[in-house]
Amino acid sequence: MTGILSGRVAIVTGAGRGLGREHALELARQGAMVVVNDFGTTLGGAIDPANPAHEVVAAIRAEGGQAVANGADVANFEQAGAMVQQAIDTYGRLDILVNNAGFVRDRMLVNTTEEEWDAVIRVHLKGHFAPLRHASKYWRDEAKAGRTPQARVINTTSGAGLKGSVGQASYSAAKAGITGLTLVAAHELARYGVNVNAIAPAARTRMTEDAFGETMAAPEEGFDAMNPANVSPVVAWLASAGSEVTGRVIEVEGGRVCIEEGWNHGPQVDSGARWEAAAVGAQIEQLLAQAAVPEPVYGS
């Protein structure tokens, strides 16, 4: 298969369903050889013995592409390393890492259990770190050996991580952490030929159908803005050697692409000395009056 990713090797995590599945299919259509990772879990994180990764591999091969399945738990450091090694052993290299795996356990903050918090932070945040850490070491070693790669990492954050979402404290915190990880990795890995970006997709998946219901439903006719396949061409371009962008977060919804601008320094004042507690309030109130009003939290 030929396309903008011809000859490149990719890992897509959480690629058995939803966004990850569409990413894997699109990358393969664009010529990439794909390691299709899925741990095979239910929406709540329980193990599902019918791992859908094999079906995605079969679909890619049926279209003439190359793919292999992987069942690693991406938040397990050793398993994540073995997944990266599988790509290298199978196809001789690794060029692309798409971190997508995750699940939700939505609760209002006062009802969230420690186990629910830990599980969501683990799968999203550590599940991004572990594959990225192992892939980064491989790319650093390649660069030091004089084979500087044109590697690309696409992480998955969310509007919940950028603005917050009522009833999703753990998910919002994890996705915000992924944004910070993306910015740091983009800076640290640039010297090794690695570009790192994140997408904030809005699409109909198992996670969003329960959270947003009818707003994610497919239309009876016309353009289906919530089809997860709409997001994947952006991922494919970011994964290409022709993409030079790094350290950015890009929101994708239907046909809309938006560059997120994130935190920037706003109005400020410097007293030149330590503030008195009784005096600082009036100064902060003046600064707030000059500052941009934050966009509302989802669900507020």
Score class of each variant (00 low, 15 high):
residue 231 V to R: 01
residue 270 D to V: 07
residue 211 A to V: 00
residue 234 V to S: 04
residue 262 G to A: 03
residue 240 S to D: 01
residue 227 N to Q: 10
residue 262 G to V: 03
residue 230 N to D: 07
residue 215 T to S: 15
residue 234 V to P: 01
residue 269 V to M: 09
residue 248 R to E: 12
residue 217 A to D: 15
residue 241 A to P: 07
residue 232 S to L: 11
residue 226 M to G: 08
residue 267 P to E: 07
residue 230 N to P: 03
residue 255 G to D: 14
residue 225 A to I: 12
residue 237 W to E: 04
residue 237 W to G: 01
residue 243 S to L: 00
residue 224 D to C: 05
residue 241 A to F: 03
residue 245 V to L: 03
residue 221 E to F: 09
residue 214 E to W: 06
residue 211 A to G: 00
residue 256 R to Y: 14
residue 259 I to T: 15
residue 255 G to N: 14
residue 230 N to V: 06
residue 254 G to M: 03
residue 213 G to H: 11
residue 214 E to C: 07
residue 269 V to W: 02
residue 229 A to I: 00
residue 259 I to H: 15
residue 252 V to A: 01
residue 223 F to I: 11
residue 242 G to V: 10
residue 247 G to I: 05
residue 220 E to D: 08
residue 218 A to I: 04
residue 260 E to T: 01
residue 249 V to R: 04
residue 235 V to D: 00
residue 218 A to W: 09
residue 216 M to A: 08
residue 263 W to I: 03
residue 248 R to K: 13
residue 249 V to Y: 03
residue 273 A to E: 05
residue 232 S to Q: 11
residue 225 A to D: 12
residue 247 G to T: 11
residue 241 A to C: 04
residue 217 A to H: 11
residue 247 G to D: 09
residue 259 I to L: 14
residue 244 E to Q: 13
residue 231 V to N: 01
residue 211 A to M: 01
residue 214 E to P: 11
residue 267 P to M: 06
residue 248 R to Y: 02
residue 224 D to M: 10
residue 252 V to C: 00
residue 225 A to M: 12
residue 266 G to I: 05
residue 265 H to Q: 10
residue 239 A to M: 08
residue 230 N to T: 08
residue 229 A to P: 00
residue 214 E to F: 10
residue 239 A to S: 15
residue 238 L to G: 06
residue 221 E to Y: 09
residue 253 E to Q: 13
residue 222 G to N: 05
residue 221 E to H: 12
residue 229 A to T: 06
residue 215 T to P: 09
residue 225 A to Q: 13
residue 215 T to H: 12
residue 213 G to Q: 08
residue 272 G to N: 02
residue 269 V to D: 07
residue 249 V to A: 08
